[in-house]
Amino acid sequence: MAKSNETFNKKEKEKKRLKKQQEKKEKAELRKTNSDKGKGLEDMMAYVDENGNITTTPPVFKKPSQVSVESIQISTPKQIDEPEDAVKTGIISFYNTSKGFGFIRDSKTQENVFFHMNNLTYQAKENDKVTFTVTKGPKGLSAENVSKL
């Protein structure tokens, strides 16, 4: 009697091959049903709402309301002209001894005013209460005649 050409191992390999083919066909059908092809432009559009979130619903446009010109108020605060040589008071908020400059916080306006160590009349350190005069320098306001209170 002749031996059968099909062995157990060959049958198992054939079963695995057929199973893989079936899985491949199922995946292809699933991709085909979930495909984006054939969808219209409206289905693919995305919009950004007023909060910056992406949404599929288009925004609703409101007609802008009318504003009367008389209701608009434009003004600038009046500046009080102080004489430039007026003596001001403040506190040294920052002072770098190695570089020789610092800043004084004005006690009235809370502005920082630059000063250089050449304009000091004493040995300064941070948090000292000082008097000074303000002049306009090339880069902004600058303090001169800085002396301790």
Rank of each mutant, 00 (worst) to 15 (best):
K11C: 10
K13G: 08
N112A: 03
S4V: 05
R17D: 02
S65Y: 13
F94E: 03
K13Q: 10
V48F: 06
R17C: 13
V48L: 11
M44V: 15
K139P: 01
A124F: 01
K13P: 02
K129N: 15
A28N: 03
K37H: 12
T89K: 04
Q123S: 13
N96M: 14
G140Y: 06
L149A: 10
D85N: 04
G90R: 00
G100T: 03
E14A: 14
L149Y: 06
K15M: 01
D43K: 14
P58E: 11
G137W: 00
K13F: 01
I54W: 04
K37R: 13
K125G: 10
A143Q: 00
V60G: 09
F101S: 13
D81T: 12
P64W: 05
T55Y: 11
V87A: 07
E12C: 13
L41V: 15
S147V: 09
G38F: 10
I91W: 15
V69T: 13
M117T: 09
S68W: 13
Q66K: 03
I92V: 12
K39C: 13
S65P: 10
N5D: 07
K148S: 00
N34G: 09
T135N: 02
S35W: 04
K3E: 06
L141Y: 05
T57N: 10
N96F: 08
N34T: 05
K78L: 11
V69Q: 09
I74Q: 08
P83S: 14
R31H: 15
I72K: 02
K10R: 15
L141H: 02
P58F: 01
G38R: 01
G140Q: 01
A86D: 10
Q66C: 10
R17E: 03
V130T: 00
N5H: 08
T33P: 02
A28G: 00
I72G: 02
P64Y: 08
Y122G: 07
S107H: 10
T56Q: 09
A143C: 06
Y122I: 04
V113A: 00
K78Q: 12
V87K: 12
S93Q: 05
N127S: 09
E14N: 09
F8S: 14
K148P: 00
T55A: 04
N145W: 00
T89R: 09
A2V: 06
G100H: 05
M44N: 10
Q21I: 03
I74E: 06
F103T: 01
E50P: 10
S93F: 08
S75Q: 06
E50G: 14
F115K: 00
K63C: 07
K63N: 09
D85L: 06
K78W: 07
V87I: 15
M44D: 13
N145F: 01
D81G: 11
Y122F: 11
V130A: 03
S147C: 02
S98V: 15
P58A: 11
N53G: 08
E29V: 02
Q21R: 11
Y122H: 13
I104D: 03
Y95P: 05
F103E: 04
R17L: 11
D106H: 12
K39N: 13
Q123Y: 08
K10A: 14
K27H: 07
N118A: 06
